[in-house]
Design a protein around this nucleic acid. Structure first.
Ligand SMILES: [Zn+2]
Ligand SMILES: [Zn+2]
Ligand SMILES: [Zn+2]
Ligand SMILES: [Zn+2]
Lengths: 146, 146
DNA sequence: TAATCTTTTGCAACTGAGTGTCATCTGGCA
DNA sequence: TGCCAGATGACACTCAGTTGCAAAAGATTA
């Protein structure tokens, strides 16, 4: 069997110093949110992050979660995924690039990476006269029952 | 030079009889919207379809456009594309499957098709134990200036 | 053709995700 | 500890899309 796709390895970079270096204050809500994102293995949405943050600090507000996600996205510290039929979901950046397969029954997100597909995308864009800035590849499927 | 991607050919099926067969009434707004979708070569959003429809019948409402897009989507007569940072955009179904490259400067949508990528997606899903129901591949780029 | 019976429409009120405003609060620094 | 620009919580607002409802209009039959 040929190995078409590899499972990307997890990562856990420290963004606090990056924020500090960019002149951005390390506040209590931001610390909490960064910790949540650093710990999790899944792709939570803003509301889910808010709920997890509430457990730690009851006074945190949903607006702050939204604002922080936006800030972190602009800094390149996280990636935003707008999977279909739902709110944006987030994950820490800093790991290897990967794409996603979404389990339509459970909502689970499975990560994969295909160098061959990445390469083909480049070729296609070049032939069309374009440079790719970024891309989105999402497979929506159901567990094969055999 | 190897041909990595081909440009899909356009098509113009007649959905009125399909609607009728499904027991769905062919109303004036639906006729107009179907004609607009049948004529256009681009990927308009609901508001744009509404504006084009208004030219033909001043009394049409935006809700009806939204409702009709939903209906046609459920029937499989059109495809909805939620490109990033904007409202859903639509196109008639019935042609060959293709994916999209979005020009980030102009918003233009360029269609392409890569059998190799389609095939790799299948292999990846199979290896992960899934059947693909559908997928989304969007390249976001800028015209190469050389 | 008109009567009838649904389905569909236009309108307006509503929803959900996210953004903007602003008075108050606080992290970083002296 | 005091200062103050930047950050926060609360809440009003936007935007895309949905929903409820009375009136209108397809399809079907007489
Ligand atoms: Zn990729
Ligand atoms: Zn991921
Ligand atoms: Zn495809
Ligand atoms: Zn298309």
């Amino acid at each position: 069997m040929t190995k078409t796709a590899t499972k990307p390895v997890p990562r856990k970079p420290d963004y606090e110093k990056a924020l500090r270096k960019a002149g951005i204050r390390i506040t209590r809500p931001r610390k909490i949110i960064l910790n949540i994102l650093g710990e999790t293995e899944d792709h939570p949405d803003a509301l889910e992050i808010f709920r997890r943050a509430e457990q730690i600090d009851k006074s945190i507000s949903l607006s702050t979660v939204y604002r922080t996600m936006k800030l972190l996205e602009e800094m390149g510290a996280i990636h935003r995924h707008a999977f279909e039929g739902g709110p944006s979901r987030f994950e820490q950046a800093g790991g290897d690039h990967h794409d996603h397969l979404i389990d339509m029954d459970t909502g689970d997100v499975i990560e994969f990476r295909s160098d061959r597909i990445e390469q083909l995308q480049q070729e296609i864009a070049r032939q069309l006269g374009y440079d790719i800035v970024h891309h989105r590849l999402e497979l929506y499927g159901r567990r094969r029952k055999d």
